[in-house]
Amino acid sequence: MRVLIIEDDADIATNLYDYLENGGYEVDVASDGAMGLHLAVTQHWDAILLDLSLPGVNGLTICRKLREEARRDTPVLILTAKDTLDDKLQGFIQGADDYLIKPFSLKEVGARLAALIKRYKGQVTQAVLSCADVRFDVSTFTVDRGGRPVKLPPKCLQLLRILMQSPNKVFGRAELEAEVWGEQLPDSDTLRAHVYTLRRALTANGEDDLIETVHGLGYRLVVDNAHPL
């Protein structure tokens, strides 16, 4: 999942970047409106976090141009100190999908962001992914197996989420690499190393290995039951 942060406050941008990256997102940051608009319309994003008070081009203009000129329907979550009803209405009029007032909780940003992306991708019912005894709360980026917390690095979280969203489906190596690493494709051993790390974490207490290597094709998560809770 790729998220663009358009925010000129370096501290806020850094906190958002670290939180989302640790949650498995691929994140980029633009510190001014012109750069943010360029990135928003020239690259694919699963969601955009957008400040309103930006140098160069303000957030409302970015949102309007994204919708009316670039014809992009990328989910936009506005993060701003402007808290009047008129400010909020203007944001929605220009095409924003949600609005959060500063100061905000990073957990709330994560929950709202996950909800926007799920609606955008048609996955509204999947607040928690459940496959066999593995549960993945996509709003808090937490995983447990049989009630045991499973700690995973960001890229492994992304891999697990992709596999759990389509259990028993065989994902080709190129498909997984593109989903997790985007345009910055890793070397040939990186995906294999991350799958190994994911397997070790999920089987640390001797549990069955749910990840199957389909030789010559890729990987899949093999389960009998798979459903959102």
Rank of each mutant, 00 (worst) to 15 (best):
K82Y: 15
R145C: 01
I162W: 02
I117E: 00
S105Y: 14
P103T: 11
K155R: 14
E108A: 10
C156G: 01
R112P: 01
L113K: 02
P167Y: 01
F141N: 02
R135P: 02
N168G: 05
L163N: 01
V138D: 05
N168H: 06
R145D: 00
Y120M: 06
P149Q: 04
G182M: 09
Y99A: 11
P167C: 10
R161M: 10
F104C: 10
A111I: 08
K121H: 11
I101C: 12
V150K: 00
F171W: 12
F141Q: 01
P103A: 10
R119K: 10
K151V: 15
V180E: 04
V180C: 07
K107A: 15
V109H: 09
R173H: 03
Q126W: 06
S139A: 15
A178C: 07
A96W: 07
L159F: 06
A114T: 05
A178Q: 13
V134A: 00
P103N: 09
P149N: 05
L129F: 05
Q126I: 04
K102M: 11
Q126N: 08
K155N: 12
P167A: 12
L157F: 06
R135Y: 11
L157N: 06
D98E: 14
I93T: 15
G182K: 03
V170R: 01
K151D: 13
E179C: 07
Q94W: 10
K169R: 14
L159D: 05
C131E: 02
L152V: 09
S139W: 04
T142W: 02
V134I: 15
A114Y: 03
